[in-house]
């Protein structure tokens, strides 16, 4: 299992950041190259700018922990995957977003982690400039 982690500090309250991330449909606003999203129960389908549609299962969405977890199930050749987004308060007006990726096959680890890195940078800009 390849395990990767990215994080970013955001100069906003944890609840404000979590309020965006807890909405699974908001992903197209902060994750680059994601152009469309459809949610049906725990299934989330995300269309990428490349035309590829990612199929995901939402695993947990916990307000008490400010944690969102999902599994990527296709169409990329995924043996196992878990994406975990945690929003952790660092005082009243600052928080850190930690985005972890555990995946097999290994070859996808850098790909997903690289995209996550872009997404967190974008998320920080989006929220801090709003």
């Amino acid at each position: 299992m390849a395990t990767m982690r990215q994080s970013v500090f955001i100069e906003r309250a944890a609840d404000e950041v979590w309020n965006l991330l807890r909405d699974p449909a908001s992903v197209t606003t902060w994750f680059p190259q994601m152009t469309d999203v459809n949610i049906d129960g725990t299934e989330r389908r995300i269309t990428l700018a490349s035309g590829l549609t990612l199929i995901e299962t939402i695993v947990s969405n916990r307000d008490d922990l400010r944690r969102f977890q999902y599994r990527l199930t296709g169409p990329l050749p995924i043996e196992t995957h878990l994406g975990t987004i945690d929003v952790i308060a660092d005082g009243d007006n600052r928080c850190v977003v930690v985005y972890s990726t555990d995946v097999i096959p290994h070859a996808l680890a850098f790909v997903l982690d690289g995209a996550v890195s872009d997404a967190l940078a974008n998320l920080k800009n989006l929220i801090e400039e709003s």
Partner: peptide, 8 residues
């Protein structure tokens, strides 16, 4: 990189 499903 070649492997680029997100077209980055």
């Amino acid at each position: 990189p070649f492997l680029d499903p997100f077209l980055r």
